[in-house]
Design a binder for these strands. Structure first.
Lengths: 109, 109
DNA sequence: GCCAATCATCGATAATTTACGATGCATTAT
DNA sequence: ATAATGCATCGTAAATTATCGATGATTGGC
């Protein structure tokens, strides 16, 4: 994960509509949701949401698959994992003590 | 961690200057760095960087401490940890299999 | 073939963010 | 006391982002 990559993921998630859409898609793994379902959930116009979705796709957080005339969207967990590893690496380099609280909270899952 | 909180942290990190400043501060834990040092590292004007720093502080990612006429900045690792837990929880609810790759990569630290 | 449905793209506009120099406010040094 | 340092804030201009309706392209059903 290069810095530019991390920045585009952070930017993509740094908007209420997009963050919520991504979280919704995670909760619907692995079936995914159609764009229309996501539009409805967002409460925004179709065109506005479409641009938001494009941001998520461009950042690699969402993978689109054409199914008939529907477009099925799926969350790409690997992209999120990549971001978290990127962020964690800063504090892990030679200073595991800083990351221990993080690991402690995550291993509960 | 509430959604608004996560959003402000994501927004704060979603800028090259701020992400780099935060990473620099993490690497300088626990001594911290003066604002002047950060300004110099950023290559931006003092006033511009000051507003960036304010964003980080407002998001809780950076803690400022007045020391004489210098302002010592420190990274708040807990804020980062909070964000990561927030993001991880979406995929961990009843589906540990999605988060296992993440944990596998993080435990190497 | 034709109509309806699904979704991306195209302007246009409003809102937000970014950037800078100038200024102001403390605090330290002389 | 005065000057200088360190940093925040103000005003402003430029760039980016967000939002929408309208339009276009593709697909499925009739």
């Amino acid at each position: 994960m290069i810095t530019d990559n991390a920045l585009s993921i952070l930017s993509a998630l740094a908007h209420p509509t997009r963050l919520e859409a991504f979280r919704l898609l995670v909760r619907h793994e692995p079936e995914g949701l159609s764009t229309g379902d996501l539009v409805e959930a967002s409460g925004l116009s179709q065109s506005t949401f479409s641009t938001h979705l494009a941001v998520l796709v461009k950042a690699g957080l969402v993978l689109a698959e054409k199914r008939g005339r529907h477009q099925i969207q799926r969350a790409n967990i690997d992209a999120l994992t990549g971001l978290m590893v990127f962020l964690a690496k800063d504090c892990c380099q030679g200073r595991a003590e800083l990351c221990e609280p993080l690991l402690a909270e995550l291993t509960c899952c």
